[in-house]
Design a protein around this nucleic acid. Sequence first.
DNA 1: CCCAAATACTCAACTTGTTGACTAGGTCGC
DNA 2: GCGACCTAGTCAACAAGTTGAGTATTTGGG
Lengths: 190, 190
Amino acid sequence: MSLRNAVMAVLLDGEASGYDLAKAFDASVANFWMCTPQQLYRELDRMEADDLIRARTVEQERRPNKRLFSLTPRGLEALAEFTAEPHKPTAIRDELMVAVMAADAGDVEKVKASLRERRQWAEAKIGRYERIKAKLLDGRTEEEFLTTAERVGPYLTLLRGLSFERDNVRWCARCLTVLERRGARLDASP
Amino acid sequence: MSLRNAVMAVLLDGEASGYDLAKAFDASVANFWMCTPQQLYRELDRMEADDLIRARTVEQERRPNKRLFSLTPRGLEALAEFTAEPHKPTAIRDELMVAVMAADAGDVEKVKASLRERRQWAEAKIGRYERIKAKLLDGRTEEEFLTTAERVGPYLTLLRGLSFERDNVRWCARCLTVLERRGARLDASP
DNA sequence: CCCAAATACTCAACTTGTTGACTAGGTCGC
DNA sequence: GCGACCTAGTCAACAAGTTGAGTATTTGGG
């Protein structure tokens, strides 16, 4: 029921196709709202039925037609109402953390491998976010940007994504150190 | 399908009732795996059917009977296998971040109120985590704990929860400052 | 020249997660 | 001594999310 708000928040930047939205979600919304393309398409149909978005079919010569969605006045209103409501606490699901919690009774080497992989992923994500950030700032300093830009929302959420991933990197490194040292100790003592 | 792994990770600490598990989830597992009591009870029945856990009914004099669950050898094995598998990327859902992204087109004052509330929540959580941490360390330094304790998994995940919430507090504060300044500017200039 | 990847989706089946109400006794504070 | 909250769950109905496959065309790399 709440995916729609995330979709509308992206549509504030203007028309987009389902496919565009899927990419936008992948690129930057994924920090705080994950979804599969299937969910998106299904939700878009419902939102159109509820008059929150309107679709404009664009016939393309050498490609399948696409539908470009944009916010209706009702949609904009619904989004504004959503921002005013109280929000549910963050819901997280992280299998790696479950594995770390159970690492003492599991395959420590494999958990370490997963931690290394996660760290790499997080580093790659930081790179992408930095690029998006540079694009948003567009040469301005943060100070300039924050006072002159029309929208600051996407920038603020991007900052959260960045610090989340930086924290991830640090945590993975910490876990690896601890598990490494323990491995050494357990090999030596018993 | 993966809630069961989180349940088994908690059961490594020993027998627990469905209710105990619900509390444990609320207190510390909630950082990386959220679930409702209903989900838990349903999953516990299935896990018992799959011989991953065993239930021992304890008759209580002045209370309804309770069932205490513990890991079976199969459950322990399944958990170890899980730790060795590759893990899905983190799935997050955070309505507040959606609201912040859409704040420019929404009710900025209400979003600020939500940010303040979230910050308070995060601060309260930090307090609880610090208390759990102190209990785990039990007077030892971190160094001592990490080399002497039987399990380090719960400690490591606790650290992640702590830094996540500290980051939350910082981010909320940052958003509030930015939205405050913008409010001032928008009131003054047009 | 062929294969892979990108564009732009759709469908069906299945598994999970959410909501709200209900049972039932006990204890704690005002 | 009454109402609220705690223990310890259960049930049903519904909403949401996941998985896997399928369609059809075009662009780009080796």
